[in-house]
Amino acid sequence: MGLTYQSTGKLANREAFDVPVSANEPVIALAGNPNTGKSTVFNALTGLRQHTGNWPGKTVLQTKGIFIHEGQQYTLVDLPGTYSLLANSVDEQVARDFICFAKPDATIVVVDATCLERNLNLALQVMEITEQVVLCVNLIDEARRRKLNIDTGALTRALGIPVVATAARSKEGLPQLLESTAKVVWKKIKPRPNLVQYIPEVEAAVSLLEPKVKALLGNDINPRWISLRLLDGDITLIKALEKFYGQQKVKSVREVFA
């Protein structure tokens, strides 16, 4: 039968990011702050099967590679290292747009075990866009050396997503990372992220805006997250929405605002 309209429609945006469109070739995004050893994780997973170029239309380096896990090929895309997804810079826009519009089958967020409290900001923001998230607590060897004890079980419970501790330099924990990621890709684990709760005024505004967003844009992109961005006036996201959804959504518009 090939691909249904539904599946091509959902994944069609991936074409704009120069990554495989077929549902049989899962795409995994690698996000993380700078200096978390994200590139070491990327190199350890893909080895020499890498390809570098530019993000389409941007002077930002795009690195992607492939790896094979239990006979299945995966494409791994190394997102620019960023501290947030609030679109303060081109790097952050690129990372946000990829997670938001290319809809990777899973997103691995690499965090530095030695400064979790700062790094978790990014993880929390990614979790607002997609449920398909795995947290990779890297540099665990460094944390051990500094006598920091990281309770991954507590992290899993607090975040609601799979958490794996790794030391990419010595390849420690990488098999477990692949295992968890594959399970998330094939829906054998269904992460239920615990989302950030905002102050009551913000939550009230979100609950009023969210249904309208859902009616206009559907459930493809997390309506709660879009509502939040609209509320904080993120112009770059509005432009990106126009670019990616301009044609498809003209009809449903009338239904909402008639």
């Binding site: 409290e117 978790l120 993880a123 004890n149 309770d151 904080d232």
Partner: peptide, 30 residues
């Protein structure tokens, strides 16, 4: 009504959440 403070408030909520999660998961021996 929230106009100028909403972005700061959102960022602030994310930071405090991250901090409290980290505090619950990290213990230091030294």
């Amino acid at each position: 009504p929230l106009q100028n403070t909403i972005r700061d408030s959102i960022v602030n909520s994310i930071y405090t959440t991250a901090e409290s999660i980290a505090a619950g998961a990290v213990t230091t021996g030294d």
